[in-house]
């Protein structure tokens, strides 16, 4: 934290705070932060910082998908009007690419690297969270639909409420692989069912 104090002394000014309560770190006001750094080591540090900010932002706003063509989110996250700098789409793409390498994100296979899921929680973490919720709520041995998990009344106060379908599917894959649950085909994605076994607890 002493580092943060000396960072503030760099004259980057007070960190921006959004209406949503999200506070950017003051590096967000550093002009070179918006230029893809050609030096490899510098770029690594820079993309790491960006990926941290992206994950924090997505967690804060419970967002899952980053879309290069979605200007609303990107304008808030990647555009700093105070210093009149913004990330170019190709730079954002390069940052996400770095995140994919580390497992913090995953490209939507059909999107030609225009959309990516941001894993501010890994599927393994979601799996642990959902299964403990299932057992605590006594839903084990009964079949739950994906809709009930993601949008049901019982999960309204849970962090995985409104979870992105892709993330949910990845989470279920983890649970099935562990032998904790079994999935059942439904007519569409939301009618897919899942049954948690006692043994998994």
């Amino acid at each position: 934290m002493s580092q943060a104090t000396s960072n503030a002394a760099q004259g980057l000014g007070q960190a921006t705070t959004l209406a949503s309560g999200f506070q950017f770190p003051s590096i967000h006001n550093f002009p070179p932060f918006y230029t893809l750094q050609p030096t490899a080591s510098t770029w690594k540090n820079q993309s790491d910082l960006w990926s941290t900010i992206i994950m924090r932002y997505y967690r804060h706003h419970r967002l899952y998908q980053l879309d290069l063509d979605d200007s609303t989110t990107n304008d808030q996250l990647f555009n700093n009007q105070r210093i009149n700098r913004k990330l170019k789409p190709e730079t954002i793409q390069a940052i996400v690419e770095e995140m994919v390498k580390k497992g913090d994100a995953e490209w939507d296979a059909t999107s030609r690297k225009r959309r990516a899921i941001i894993y501010w929680r890994r599927p393994e973490d979601w799996a642990a969270m959902i299964s403990s919720w299932v057992f605590e709520s006594g839903f084990n041995n009964s079949i739950l639909t994906y809709y009930e998990i993601a949008h049901g009344e019982n999960s309204e106060d849970q962090e995985f409420y409104n979870i992105h379908p892709t993330v949910l599917q990845k989470t279920m894959d983890v649970l099935v692989k562990r032998g904790v649950a079994a999935t059942f085909q439904g007519a569409n994605f939301e009618e897919m069912g899942v049954k948690f076994f006692n043994a998994g607890a």
Partner: peptide
């Protein structure tokens, strides 16, 4: 323009 490399030691 060139700036001091703040990325190196920045912790957030």
């Amino acid at each position: 323009r060139f700036f001091d490399n703040l990325f190196t030691h920045w912790e957030i």
